Amino acid sequence: MDRDLHGYGGNPPRARFPNDAALAVSLAVNFEEGAEWAVADGDAAAERVAEIHSVVPAGRWDQGTEQQFAYGMRAGIWRVLDALERHKRLATFYMCGRAVERSPDIARRIVQAGHEAACHGWRWRPHADYDSREAEQADLRRCVAVLREVTGQAPAGFFCRGSESPWTRELLRGENFAYTSNGLDDDLPYWADPAADRPLLVIPYAFDSNDMKFFHPNGFVRADDMVGYVRDAIEVLLEEGRRGTPKLLNIGLHLRIVGRPGRFAALARILDMLDSYGDRIWTPRRIDLARYWQEHFPPR
């Protein structure tokens, strides 16, 4: 497959965000709990990425890991929703279909609060794992169907764990998705295959300004580690925006991670920080950013 290593080539579009904001900040919350690998659900092995590396042998029931995930739905979600409501911020929730199926009332409440429900695949798995286009399409449609049934809306955006498959974007076009976020290579949206009959918008995501760094030994330890990192990113990008090239900053969140009290302090302080910048920062849902980009920078 061809790789685009150059993107905008040092000449990014000069976006003019609402209220002349110099930066767009996307709050992306991952809604995955209940869709991870679990022996209790019939999977061959349990998920290994959690607070600690599990000592339970592969193939055995791993109660501890299941409970670490369950914390996100039992406790974390309520802290996150309350904080977003108090700060009047809307987010995009990347929802796994299996998680929505198991927690429909929570998913419905999220959308009723005005947040966007986007597709995070049927299970919390890399789409690169699919052996066939047909199997991936079936699970993609399954996720769309349950989100539509539970929330009343079909998802317009997509993001999967790990990597897309070679045919994911073709499937997304066929299923009328507006954008994918499996792009870790830019600070601005861009069109994939702009000359195609149905170009697909890529709204990049990021793993650096992401609470998953609390799970990595070279990442965040205390809440202020993440707050300071996000503040530095905002200041760098605000300066670029003031010079005429506004960018996008992604803040990735997970209910079972940032929902824990010691890490929730990071989200609380980040939301306070965003408030302090006023109209200099625009915090759209990703579907709102997609609509803005389609209007102002359509594919050529």
Rank of each mutant, 00 (worst) to 15 (best):
G121F: 03
R123G: 03
W124S: 07
W124M: 06
R125P: 00
R125A: 12
P126I: 08
H127R: 11
H127T: 14
D129V: 04
D129F: 07
S132V: 10
E134D: 12
E134W: 05
A135V: 09
A135L: 10
A138C: 06
L140N: 11
R141L: 03
R142D: 09
R142N: 02
A145Q: 13
V146T: 13
R148N: 14
R148I: 09
E149G: 10
V150L: 09
V150W: 02
T151A: 11
Q153V: 13
Q153N: 15
A154R: 14
P155C: 00
A156G: 13
F159K: 13
F159H: 15
C160N: 12
S163L: 11
S163H: 12
R169D: 06
E170P: 07
E170G: 12
E170L: 03
E170R: 02
L171D: 01
L171W: 02
L172H: 02
L172R: 03
R173E: 01
R173I: 06
G174Q: 15
E175F: 05
N176T: 07
F177A: 07
F177I: 02
A178M: 11
Y179C: 05
S181R: 05
G183W: 13
D187L: 07
L188W: 15
P189W: 02
W191Y: 01
W191F: 05
D193K: 15
P194V: 05
P194Q: 01
D197P: 15
R198N: 07
L200E: 05
L200V: 01
L200F: 01
L201K: 05
L201W: 04
I203H: 00
I203M: 01
P204Q: 01
Y205N: 11
A206G: 12
D208G: 11
S209W: 15
M212Y: 10
M212G: 06
F215V: 14
N218H: 14
N218C: 13
N218D: 15
G219L: 08
F220M: 06
